[in-house]
Amino acid sequence: MAGLDTACAAPTPEDGPAPSAPGGIGDPTVGEVRLPNLPESARTARGLARAALSDRWGLPESVTEDTVLLVSELVGNAIRHTGAQSLGLRMHRRRGLVRVEVRDPSRGLPCLLPVHELDVSGRGLFLVDRLSDRWGVDLLSHGKTTWFEMRTGER
């Protein structure tokens, strides 16, 4: 784990107006979007992330693709391992950095396990650890926020 951090930046005026979110369920760049504990929520989260990264923020495809993959992994982990009825997705941007947060009501910490070549599952946090610039978990009074940050190449 890269460390714990609670600092994040609010969207800046240069971000422009919020795009229409898939399914009209909200915009994770404006406020937390609640997703039900259903397998299709990972797909919804990918769509929300792609809309924010590409449409709203105009970030490069390489950053968008890796970030969308990691959003799917964190949401999928929360669905599979927390027993939560719902979870929250939030995205922040500041120059050169995107931060994605997935909140759930479980205080159980995610575990970064060793990954072997023939493993068919358990690669989610391994991917987060390898592809993100930093990631961590903030424990809350009722649950936790698992987050990661990606550099965007902006200066």
Rank of each mutant, 00 (worst) to 15 (best):
T67R: 01
L70N: 02
P17V: 14
G153Y: 08
R99F: 04
G31T: 12
K144S: 14
E32H: 02
L70Q: 09
R90F: 05
G16V: 13
G24A: 06
D119Y: 13
P105F: 03
H142E: 13
S106Y: 07
D119L: 11
E117P: 05
L112Y: 10
V75A: 02
S86D: 12
R90H: 14
H142S: 09
V33Y: 01
A84E: 03
T64I: 05
M150W: 00
G24R: 03
D138L: 05
P114E: 10
P28M: 10
D15Y: 00
V75Q: 00
P28A: 11
G153S: 10
L87P: 01
S141F: 08
W57E: 02
D66C: 09
L118V: 15
D27P: 02
S20A: 15
D133A: 13
D5W: 04
G47N: 04
L140A: 08
V120N: 08
L38R: 15
C8S: 08
V137K: 05
R56Q: 10
S86W: 06
T152C: 04
G153V: 12
L74K: 04
V68W: 01
A10S: 06
L70T: 11
S20G: 11
C111Y: 08
A52T: 15
P36A: 13
P19W: 13
I79W: 01
V63I: 14
R93L: 06
V71S: 00
E32A: 10
T44M: 11
L113H: 15
E61F: 07
G136W: 04
E61Y: 06
A51C: 06
A49K: 00
L48N: 01
L70D: 03
R123Q: 13
G24W: 02
G88C: 08
K144G: 01
L140P: 00
C8V: 12
A10E: 03
G153F: 11
A84W: 03
E14R: 13
T64F: 00
L139S: 08
T152A: 05
G124S: 14
L118Q: 14
D104M: 04
S20I: 14
G96W: 08
E117T: 15
T12W: 01
M91T: 13
N77I: 10
A9D: 04
L125A: 06
N77A: 11
L125D: 00
L140S: 01
D138W: 01
G76E: 02
C8P: 00
G47T: 07
E149R: 06
L4I: 14
